[in-house]
Each structure stands twice: as C-alpha cells, then as structure tokens.
Write a protein that binds this DNA or RNA. Structure first.
Length: 816
DNA sequence: GTACACTACATACC
DNA sequence: ACTGGTATGTAGTGTAC
C-alpha cells in the first residue's frame, strides 16, 4: 500500500526494547494518518589519531561487550562501523556505534570513556531530530510512503486501535514528492475565562473555540437568552467534558491558544484533575503533558498545541510596534481588530444581561487567536521546512535554537559529526567570561542638518563571518593561510579553507537576497515568510557565536566579527569623508552623512565604487535620502547623545530613534508633545511653533486640564517584587496592586501616576498612585520630570532654554 | 541636611 | 538560561562633609 503523506506531529514509543517513530499527519485526501517508522540509532566515538588497525579491532571488541540493563529493556551494541568523518572541519576516524535503544545512548557514551577514544558525540540530540535526519522525513513536506497498513493489528501491542486515526501505516519505503500539494491544516483556537488568575484556583466560567466557519462558547453560567453560539451545561465538569468531546469531533491538526502554555491549557488540566476527570484530548486518549521550562510547554499527543504568543514573541516582536505583546495590542496591529470590551469582575457580580457580552468577549479572543494562527501559518510552515524541525518545536524554540537546528540538520552535507551541547561547568565558565568589545558608535554633534543620506551594510556581522571565515572550526593556531584579527589582548587566526559554519551562513545570506528579489516580483505571503526566516537566521548567527549555550560557541569568532566590523565601518567612514561628504553619525553598520554639494546620482555612483572595493560578500546599500535630521545633546553634558536622533525623508516620513517618544516608560503627554515638536522642526523647520506648542502644553498642565490617561506611566515588572534591591516607583505600584488583590505577574506593565501629596514626601515612590486612585497629578513632577526633559534638549539646539522660560522671570507673563 | 557618586533598573539601538 | 555589545536616563541608596 502506498499513500501520500504530510508529517505534522512527531513522537516515539518503545516496543520490545526498540524505538519507533510515531508520526501523525494527513494524506492527500485529508485523512488523518499515523505512520510508524524506525531507524537504527547510533552514536559516534571519535578515535585518537594514529591508532593501528589492530588497536581499532581490539577496541571494537571491547565496545561490543557493552550492555545497559534496565527493568524494561537491555541495550546492546548492535554493530560498529569505522567511518572517515569530519569533526570541527578536521578529518577524523570514528566508530559509528549502533545501539538497541536510543534512550540509553547517554549511558553507552559514559561507558566509552576509553583511552583510545578522543570524543563521544551524537548522543544528545532529541529523538525526533535524530529521526528526521536519518529518515529525511521533514515536517510539512509531502512524501510517498510505502508500507503495511495496520488495521486491528496485533503489531506494536495494537497501536492502530489505540489512536484515533483514519489510516495507520508501518513505513517501509519513504520518498519525497517534489511537486507541491496544497495543504491547509485544520486549526482550532481556544480560550478560557476563569474566576481566579492562579492556575486551577478558581472555576473556569467558559471556554470558547473558533476555527474556519466554526465558533462556540461552552459555559455553565447564566445563559438564557444567549447568542446561538453558546452551549450551556449543568456545571464546570460537564462543560469540561463537552470541551473534550468538541476537540475530538473537530479533529484539529492544531490547537492554538494565546499564552496557552502558561495559562489556558494548564488551567484546563488542573480543573479536570479537580473533578477527577481525564482531559483526554490526545489522539491516544492521553492528557496534555507539560515539559519543564521557564514557561511549561504543553503538548497533546497527536495534535500540535501551539501557543502563538511564544512564536510571535521570539520571532516577530522585534518588528512589531506594539508596546506589549498582549492579545489586544498584537491583534490590533496585525489584524486591525482588537478584543471586545468587557469589565472584569467576580462572576457573582455580573448581571444577567452582561453575560452575553462576556460570552462575546470570550469568543472574540478565540477568533483573534485563530486569525493570528492563520496569518502566521506561512511563517510557521517555512520555519518547519527550513529548520527541518516539527511545528511544536519551531513555535517554542529560541533564536539560538533555531540557528542551531539549521546547523544540525545541514551537517551531513559536510560529513560533519555534531558537536555536543556544553555541560554545566562549561556554561558557567562561558557566562563568567569577560565581555569583548562590540560595535562602534560615532560621537555625534548636536544640531539640525539638511540633505542627508544613510548607507548601511547588509547583514553586516553575517557578511563579516562569511568573508573572514570565522567560526569555532576555522579558529586556528596556524598563522599561514589564515585571516589575522587583532582582538583586545591577543591576535586570533582563522583558516582560509572555508568552514561549514561560514558556508552555511553564506547560503543563508544568499537565499535571503534571492528571496527578497523574488518577493518584489511575487509578493506572496510564502515568499515573504521564507525571506524573513532567512533574514532572522542571518541576524541571529553572530549572537549565537557568543551565546553560552551554543554547541558551536566561539568567543574569538564573535569578538573577531565585531573587530572586523569596526574596522570596516571606520574605513568606510573615511572614504565617505574623503569623497567630499561629511559623516555626522554612525552606529554599528550604518553611516549618516551630509550630501554637501553632491547629487543623488553622484552618491549612488560613489556607493557602487565603494562596493567594488569591499572584500568578500560585504555589501553596502543606500538606506535612504533624508530632508532633515536632528541630533541632541545628552542630558548631563554638552556632548551629543548616541542612539538618539530623528530624521525625515522626502515623503515626509519620520524616523525617530531613541527619543522618549519611542520609549514606553514615559507618559503619553511627554511622548506626544515631543513627537509633535520633532515634527514641527523636521517638517516645517519651525522651532518657534514648536516652542509655542510646549508653552501651550505647560499652560494646560498647570491649569490641570490634562487627562489621567495622558499622565499614566508604564514600567515593566521584570522579576518578583521581593527580589528588587531598589524599591522604585513601579515596584511600589506593583505592591499596591497586590494588596488590592489584583493580578501581579512577572513581565507585566505596571501602570501608575505621580500624585500631589499633603506632607512633604520626598521620594517619587511616596507619591505613586494607581490608575483608579483618587488624587491630583503632581504638577511639579510632570513639569520637571516629564515635559521639560522631553523637549529641553531639542529646543536647546535652537538656543531656546525652556527651563528658564518655564520657571524664570517670564513666568508671570506666560502663566498669568 | 544635603550634595554627590554610585548602583539598580528599564529601555532603546543595531 | 534560552543570541551579542553599546548607550541613555531615572530613581534610589550610601556616604562625606
């Protein structure tokens, strides 16, 4: 029997002491398929050089005797092959040691601590990673699977009847289908509303579900006269059972939630436990399982549970404007649609007519979550294909893990044996290391400029790593045929023979470039997602080199990448200045300069000539031309502030960096005022109008016409309240919230304002009030600590001293 | 009692 | 613990005088 199959979810099981991969997916008719497959698990023992044939034979004999016994199985050495491999780009002889059960690989490795063996590798990859590499069954790609159909079979203890699938097949032959078959997974989003915030503490009031042409709210609360999507149940227990039933009936490939790893799924599990019922939504009737982690990872057997918040957080948050990653803000930005309004209160206080509103609210959360999952589907799909890891992993892995997965799944092309994960002590040492010197930032002069241009290097660090062949494997003591880099104390050398890490990165950068071009002519979501995935990988590769948890960690390479980038940007700055321009700012990989008497055409020609001289794959591009730009001084001194500037292009679009306008921990009043001031100055060159606006705002502030919303300050709580050594205003606000029984969680944005106080309280934190507290805003604070600081340095560029104007001799004239 | 240096903390840039 | 370093700026804290 042969079927067409797309793998979605991976797991494995043991049968008679051996491992079997168990993959859930669909066939080309949309039938749910369970594939059972196996491979011969193995690990490598890298031999010390110059062992004789005889010594190797003796060693093999010794190894063959290894046995790992446990209550359920015995792992033996199945066979041993001698192979010529590469390890960190060096030619090595290695024993490929096949074992009965991969779970015992670690223990086998422990027993291989022998004098003839230089290193043991390839035993610390997860089962599914090893399986995907060996059988080349990449997630979300199509395959032809030849095999035996199991139907009420005794094989594997009757596994086919244990799983709720349409087809169960034991794979014999797997072949990739190159032609793309359209595939759309069945996605169901879910969301719960509860009485309490702590997991399992209160009752679940309702559960919503949403999919394509599907919406439902399950509840046991007041639901007479409710919309037709509401289904009522006797109690919480019955509602939970209905949830299970719905999931089973809907047969989703994907169950998606928003922060559901940390809230919805564990909550459901906890309440089910409380009622002593099984939340058996798995295809094998198993309950969700939670893997340890900073946030637990909730998995459902046979269905991919995705917490779309996690994927958005690690992969896309850097591109979002949203100041928090809450569902409302993220959905509003990405979908143009937010959450429904509903004022939370204890269910006993919700009036009869308010319940339908609450149901709508609950449903809307699932609808938004569903739409987000749909929107990010191309991205998730491309991540799976490029990184060759399952959906569950790619939606939860960190950027460093993504980089590493790309490396691991592409090592075979280089005949490389995988490096091991650092052990505890190594991680400690790496974390304790000194920082190396990073990027160069140009010291700007405060001032307003006209006619500017900005160049920047494309994927600068990545290009440098490729151009100078920087990596752990290419780091060498050999000074011949190598690139020499001066680091802080010593010199480092990197072989000129291309290593696998720079070669893979080169491919990533090239693919990104091609896809970016392709996207211009064919702007499909798939092309965008693919292009973006490569861009993210290219950007994260440099950081990976210096990350303590990396298998291919190499500070020398990271430090060299930074050093060579500094060299490159300095040389480019010099070239630009020599050509008759004036460089006024630069940060890491970008250079802003004044056009002087040069035309745009000349500038583009000049750019071409720079590019012809740049080494390797280094490439400089035009970021844009700008009509005006402003740099300001630091608060504490006369010198120009780095990482803080505002530009306006010829279409009138502003680019604001570093200013309070873009900082979420400043109040809206100050941020909006500053933004308008910058706009008046950049758009119209009218600093007088800007000054008038500032005066007007100060006047309104003094007349207490400013709304509460405008003066709220938001600061993130980054750790538990008790761990703060320094009790800052937001910590006080968080304390107040906790006393009121409001939820206070790590990562939350704490909102407060600074109020007038009767006594002469000195510290800011003594004047902190929560949004709902009574009180007037503290005039002095908002004037001196918000408004004035936000505009002071900008107006100073025009020799306007707003502080003097505000409280100086003209005070009367101004505020009378 | 206050000025000042230093530390803790949050957030941004690239 | 879950990519790197560079930088600004506020508020609290400790100490000298």
């Amino acid at each position: 029997m042969e079927i067409k199959f797309i793998p979605i979810e991976y797991d494995y099981f043991d049968w008679q002491g051996r491992n079997y991969a168990r993959i859930i997916g669909r066939d080309d008719n949309g039938k749910r398929v369970l594939v059972i497959d196996s491979f011969e698990p193995f690990l490598y023992a890298i031999l010390k050089p110059n062992l004789t044939e005889k010594q190797i034979e003796k060693l093999k004999e010794k190894i063959e005797k290894i046995e790992i016994k446990s209550s359920s199985r015995t792992t033996k050495i199945e066979k041993i092959k001698v192979e010529e491999k590469n390890f960190l780009s060096k030619r090595v002889k290695a024993l490929k040691i096949y074992i009965t059960n991969y779970k015992d690989a670690h223990q086998v490795a422990d027993k291989l601590d022998l004098p003839e063996i230089q290193a043991r590798r390839g035993y610390d990859l997860s089962f599914h990673t090893k399986y995907i590499i060996e059988r080349a069954l990449v997630p979300l790609s199509w395959y032809k699977i030849d095999g035996e159909i199991l139907n009420n079979s005794e094989e594997f203890g009757g596994i086919d009847s244990a799983y709720d699938v349409d087809i169960c097949i034991k794979a014999e032959n797997i072949e990739k289908i190159e032609k793309n078959i359209d595939f759309k997974p069945k996605i169901i989003a879910f969301d719960i509303e509860t009485e309490e915030f702590d997991i399992g503490k209160g009752e679940i009031l309702m559960i919503s579900l949403a999919g394509e042409n599907f919406k439902k709210v399950l509840t046991w609360k007041k639901c007479s006269e409710s919309p037709d999507f509401v289904e009522c149940f006797k109690d919480e227990e019955e509602m939970l059972e209905a949830f299970i039933e719905n999931v089973k009936k809907l047969e989703p490939d994907i169950l998606v939630g928003y922060f559901s790893d940390g809230f919805d799924l564990p909550y459901l599990r906890a309440r089910a436990e409380k009622h002593k019922i099984k939340l058996n939504i798995g295809l094998d009737n198993s309950q969700p399982v939670f893997a340890r982690g900073r946030v637990p990872k909730g998995s459902v057997s046979g269905i991919v549970h995705i917490d779309i918040f996690r994927f958005i957080e690690t992969v896309y948050s850097q591109y979002l404007q949203s100041e928090t990653l809450g569902l409302n803000e993220v959905a509003t930005e990405l979908l143009g649609e937010g959450k429904k309004e509903f004022e939370f209160k204890h269910s006993s206080k919700i009036k009869q007519h308010e319940w339908p509103e609450f149901f709508q609210y609950n449903l809307q959360d699932s609808i938004l979550t569903y739409k987000l999952a749909e929107k990010f589907w191309p991205d998730m799909q491309e991540f799976c294909k490029i990184l060759q890891e399952p959906l569950f992993e790619i939606t939860r892995d960190s950027m460093s893990q993504h980089v590493e997965n790309y490396l691991i799944h592409n090592l075979e092309k280089y005949n490389e044996i995988v490096e091991k994960r650092p052990i505890h002590d190594e991680i400690g040492e790496r974390m304790a290391r000194e920082k190396y010197e990073g990027a160069f930032v140009f010291q700007p002069k405060p001032g307003l400029h006209e006619n500017l241009a900005m160049f920047d290097f494309t994927s600068m660090y990545g290009s440098v790593i490729v151009t100078y062949n920087l990596s752990k494997a290419t780091l060498t003591e050999d000074k011949k045929d190598s690139y020499e880099v001066q680091l802080q104390k010593q010199k480092a050398h990197f072989s000129k023979k291309p290593g696998f890490f720079p070669l893979m990165l080169k491919e990533i950068i090239e693919k990104r470039k091609q896809l970016k071009q392709k996207y211009k002519t064919d702007p499909s979501p798939i092309n965008k997602a693919r292009s973006n995935a490569y861009k993210l990988l290219a950007n994260a590769s440099y950081g990976y080199l210096g990350f303590f948890g990396a298998r291919y960690y190499c500070v020398e390479a990271a430090a060299a990448a930074a050093a060579l980038s500094r060299k490159s940007i300095h040389e480019t700055i010099d070239m630009i200045n020599k050509e008759g321009y004036e460089v006024i700012y630069s940060d890491t990989d970008s250079i802003a300069f004044l056009m002087k008497n040069n035309s745009k055409k000349q500038t583009l020609e000049f750019l071409k000539s720079i590019n012809s001289k740049l080494p390797g794959i280094m490439e400089l591009e035009l970021e844009d031309f700008y009509k005006r730009g402003i740099w300001v001084s630091k608060r504490a001194s006369e010198s120009g502030a780095k990482k803080k500037y505002a530009l306006i292009d010829e279409k009138g679009k502003m680019k604001i960096r570093g200013f309070e306008t873009v900082r979420r921990d400043w109040c809206t009043l100050a941020r909006e005022l500053q933004s308008k001031v910058l706009e008046l100055i950049l758009k119209e060159g009218n600093e007088r109008a800007a000054l008038e606006l500032v005066k007007k705002t100060i006047k309104e502030l003094k007349e207490r016409k400013v709304t509460r919303e405008q003066i709220m300050i938001r600061t993130q709580l980054k750790k538990p309240i008790s761990e703060y050594k320094s009790i800052t205003p937001h910590v006080i606000a968080a304390q107040k919230m906790r006393e009121l029984g409001l939820p206070v969680n790590i990562g939350m944005l704490i909102e407060y304002f600074i109020a007038e106080t009767r006594e002469s309280k000195k510290l800011v934190r003594e004047k902190v009030k929560l949004p709902d507290e009574k009180g007037e805003y503290n005039l002095k604070y908002y004037l001196e600590h918000q408004i004035i600081p936000a505009v002071e340095n900008i107006l100073e560029v025009f020799q306007i001293n707003i502080k003097e104007i505000s409280d100086g001799s003209r005070q009367k004239k101004l505020f009378s």
